[in-house]
Amino acid sequence: MATSRTANRLGDVTEQTALGDLYLRSLLTEQLRLALRVIGVLVLTLGLVPLLFHLAPGLADRRLLGLPLPWLALGVLVYPFLLFLGWRYVRRAERNERVFADLVGGHADED
């Protein structure tokens, strides 16, 4: 039955076997890569803002929708952006876990 198979493969992951190592390493790498990708996006967007305005202070006087650019970007748009990044991360992280559960042969995360 599926339950005993799950227990065996999970045993592989928990105990130190070559197969278990492989399973765990793949999940860890996948989740870490996902996390670093989100942080990378953060660095390449928000992280560059101070440098951008440091190099081109004139940008601060540009107006969009009646608001100066920095106030629009850092006062308003940044929040939906962060929420979107978080939402997308959760979907992908849960998918990685489902893939891992399938690989190990369990029936995790049914709901």
Binding site: E97, V104, A108
Partner: peptide, 8 residues
């Protein structure tokens, strides 16, 4: 790193 439902 494993989901609780797997109980590892």
């Amino acid at each position: 790193h494993t989901p609780e439902t797997m109980d590892a």
